[in-house]
Amino acid sequence: MLETLSPQPADALLALIKLHNADPRPEKIDLGVGVYRTSEGDTPVFRSIKAAEAKLLAEQESKAYLGPEGDMGFVRALIPFVFGKDFDTARVDGMQAPGGTGAVRLAIEVAKRAGAKRVLMGVPSWPNHAQIVTAAGLELKTFRHTTAEGTADLDALKAALGEAMEGDIVLLHGCCHNPTGVDYTPAQWDEIAPLLASTGVFPLIDLAYQGLGEGMEADAYGLRKVLAHVPEALVAYSCDKNFGLYRDRVGAFYAVTGDAGALERALANGATIARASWSMPPDHGAAAVRLILSDEALTADWLAELDEMRDRMRWVRDRLAAAQQVGPIAMAPLGIQNGLFSMLPLSGEQILAIRERHGVYMAGSGRINIAGLTDGNIEAFIAALADVAG
């Protein structure tokens, strides 16, 4: 039987990691792997997480199953940070998922059971978005996310919504767009929210990087604006990035509606899907987040750590933007983008050249993780970019 399986292409990012690890040059630069790095190049465990884990070690009395919904204390502790302290909690409930990926998959599967047939999505997008949509058996309809000037293309979104059909949902990044770093502005969200309400297209918002763009409140602006206008929505949330819990896979899936019965059914269907997919989500990371959010001192320390991360990434962006023009590449737009990622308009040949000649490793799409740049290598990176782009 197994001999009938079709070969699958190797994961490009995993291949890039292997190439970087095998490169003996001490000056090599890794801009491919999508994790936060300090100015020393480390991806540390948060201070607040270590403190919460110590508390968990001392106080946890059992590792018995919690059920497919996971740690509901974690799920509900996140609600005021995601939806706002004044949000009507009768409208929202959720369940834990293994990372933001699991949350997106749950959202897509629940939407499919509710009658969704097609997903509208701006491109480029996180590659796994398309894979999840097609694996769930839904049609994918794409539209352009960015303009030639490097801003979010609101007109393209409007056109896609204007051509939407019954059963369409639209997948939107809440902040820190992956892979472009190009977010809708508050003014654009102010237009998007009532447009979603008037067209009836169902919103699915992926909020994977809250706090890494402009701050916890600012990064939730689009989500909250949309929820103030539409009767219902689905939300996929990740704690992997803003708590540094990458390998612990900590996410949450939320349903928002004004109908108590519909809310109960959405979560019941989510639990059924989860039971057949991963049975129970991993507990440790979510329990640590719950402890942080239930302790004012730990919450304050966590928010301070987010400030440090955000300030460092803003410093990198400002330094890149200060280069203004590197060959044909306009660098200034990088200064107004958000989060870990940006895209450089490089050809495949140029991406290969910068890797071979300068030891700079980036995705074949031109996506770079700006957290891979430090005071010690950023000027070398700009020089390498000028060499291959000029």
Rank of each mutant, 00 (worst) to 15 (best):
2 L>P: 08
2 L>C: 02
7 P>G: 06
17 I>L: 12
37 R>T: 09
42 D>E: 15
59 E>T: 13
62 S>E: 08
71 D>K: 02
79 I>R: 12
95 M>L: 13
96 Q>Y: 06
106 L>S: 02
110 V>S: 05
111 A>E: 09
111 A>S: 12
113 R>F: 03
123 V>M: 14
128 N>A: 15
134 T>Y: 09
136 A>F: 07
144 R>V: 06
147 T>A: 04
148 A>P: 05
151 T>Y: 12
161 L>E: 00
169 I>W: 02
174 G>R: 01
175 C>S: 13
177 H>S: 15
184 Y>W: 14
193 A>H: 04
203 P>H: 02
221 Y>A: 07
226 V>Q: 01
228 A>S: 15
229 H>W: 09
231 P>E: 13
235 V>S: 06
241 K>Q: 10
245 L>T: 03
248 D>I: 03
249 R>W: 13
251 G>P: 04
257 T>I: 10
258 G>S: 07
259 D>F: 03
276 A>P: 01
280 M>F: 09
294 S>F: 07
296 E>M: 08
299 T>E: 13
301 D>R: 11
305 E>L: 05
308 E>V: 09
321 A>C: 11
324 Q>A: 13
329 I>G: 06
331 M>W: 03
338 N>A: 11
344 L>C: 08
350 Q>W: 06
354 I>Y: 05
358 H>V: 01
359 G>A: 03
362 M>N: 04
375 D>Y: 09
379 E>Q: 09
385 L>F: 02
386 A>V: 06
388 V>W: 08
